[in-house]
Structures are given as C-alpha cells and as structure tokens.
Amino acid sequence: MSHTASLDHLPMLAGSGSIEAFISAANRVPMLSEVEEQALARRFREHEDLDAARQLVTSHLRLVIAIARGYLGYGLPHADLIQEGNIGLMKAVKRFDPDRGVRLVSFAMHWIKAEIHEYILKNWRLVKIATTKAQRKLFFNLRSIKASLAQDADSRQGFNTLGAEEVSAVAKQLGVKPEEVIEMETRLTGADVSLEPLSDTEEESYAPIAYLAADRSVEPLAMLERKEYDRMQDEGLSSALASLDERSRAIVQRRWLVADGEEAATLHELAAEYGVSAERIRQIEVKAMQKMKGQLAA
C-alpha cells in the first residue's frame, strides 16, 4: 500500500468554463454504490490506479459543492471555496481505507471542511485571532448562534450586538472567554475601510495610506538583517550549550529550552532524577547560566 501516488493531475470535469457549468457537470456524475466504492478504493490503495481515484473524486464533487455552499456568508468566492474543498476531498481519497466499514462520504466531510476552514482563516478580511481550536470553533459558530438568538427575540434584528448575558452564554457554550466572544463579534460586524482614496480628484485625503507609517520590518534588507541575527543567536546558543557538561546542559534545556506545549521541569523533579537536593540543582543551574552568559558575550 502506498500513499505516494499523486492526485494533483486528476481530470476534474474538463470543459467546465464557469462555476455554474462545473456544478451542473458534477451533479450529473452518478453516485457510487458501496461495492463500487470499495472496489475502486482497493484499486487505488493496492495498485496506485489513478483512474480509480479519479472516479472516487468526481463521484463526490457534489458533496464538496454542498459543503462549500454553507460557507458563502464569509464573502469569499464560491469557486474558491469549492476548489479548496476539492483539495480536501483528494486528501480524503488518498487516505481512505475501505476495510474500516465507513463510507467515503462520511470520511471525506472532515477533510473537505478542514481545507475550507483553513482557506477562510487565511483569507477572510477580518479574521486574525482564530489560532486555537476554541477560537476557530467560535469563529465558525458565532454567526449561526447570533442568528438563533435573533429569532428567539422579536426585538432583535439579525446581527445586532450581543448583550452581556448573551455573551456569557455563547462563551460558556463554546468554551472560550467572554472577551474573546466580544472581540470576534467586533471583527465579524466591522466594516472595511479603504486603504487608499476612493477618488483621484480629491485634493485632500485622509485615507489610512496618508498617515500610516511604513512597516520597515517587511523590507527586504530588514528581513535579511533579522534572519542573520536569528542565525547568529541560534549558533551562539548552541555553542554556549556545548560548553557545558552533560548534566548541566540537560538541566538548562529541561528548565529553559522546552518545546512549545511542554512544561519545564521543576527543581524538585530534577533533584529526584539526579539524586541530589533541589538546592543543588539550583546551584548547578545558576553556574551553567553564568557560563553560558559569558560565552554569548564573548
């Protein structure tokens, strides 16, 4: 079984000159029976048969179209949403195991939605904070929750600002902080501001481009300088660590250089591991840090 077969060049309904034509053609592709689906999936997994993969993909394009239609409220082109969903579908076909007793339509939904979510988060004009799983859930559910709240209260209209009680309810329901709900709601209901003047004939303009300072950090020279500085810092740190004995190096790394998401070891944990007191671990750490500081300053 190989996962290296490429699906990049699968023929995807040739001759579709518009999104309407593509949708019409996709809906005309017959659905597969479970027996046909399993046979095609095995041909692809066992023999890297790209024609079998093409049939699996094209027979499920209507699923992509249906899912993509549910994300039109974010102001992004339907065609782009479908394209990203198609990528998710191809990833699903590549990973689909017919022996697990699950139909491809159920398995593919996760991959299709994941690709569309990533596309929206990277390209939608206002979203910059949806970085955690909870925030993503907030982003993709806040609109529907607000619409539901609006239907339950006759005095409310569509996407009006949430009240304090509603903010708390949404935060509790989605597992986020109330301030995150407020910030996301602000982003969802905020209006675009033109960066440049809307008319070339105006003598005076107060568009943001007129007074926003340039971000020097994205200039090529500044980026090269920052990259070189980071490289020198990394090399210096590696050299300083190499100057320590094995025990001191391990203590410093586990106390101060743990990977993101990991917790640093405590003095007591290291003391139990090395069979010494916590005070002794602290002394070793202080001495090691002083030596490294000297190395970095040299």
Rank of each mutant, 00 (worst) to 15 (best):
S217E: 03
A297C: 04
D152S: 11
L162I: 01
E115M: 06
T4N: 15
L244R: 02
G88H: 07
Q157V: 06
R280D: 06
R42W: 05
L267A: 14
S2P: 11
R247V: 14
I120W: 01
A169F: 04
I281A: 09
F140S: 00
I67T: 03
A259Q: 15
P197R: 07
A68F: 05
A264R: 15
I67V: 15
A264P: 11
D99R: 11
V57W: 10
T266C: 08
T266A: 10
L126F: 10
H47C: 02
Q290G: 11
V102Y: 01
L121T: 05
Q295R: 14
V102H: 08
G275K: 08
F159D: 04
G15E: 06
E202F: 08
I87M: 15
Q173D: 09
A150V: 02
T186Y: 01
E118S: 09
D97E: 13
D215N: 12
S2V: 14
L40Y: 04
Q135S: 01
L198Q: 05
G158N: 06
M90K: 13
I65T: 02
K227A: 12
S238M: 12
G175R: 07
F44T: 07
R100Q: 13
Q151I: 11
L121A: 10
A278W: 12
S16H: 12
K146F: 00
E20S: 15
D260R: 07
A265W: 13
A272E: 15
A26E: 11
R247P: 00
S194N: 07
G236C: 15
M289Q: 13
I251E: 00
K177W: 00
P98G: 02
L10Q: 11
L241A: 09
L81C: 11
E235M: 15
Y119C: 05
R231D: 05
A5N: 10
E20Q: 09
L188F: 07
K293D: 14
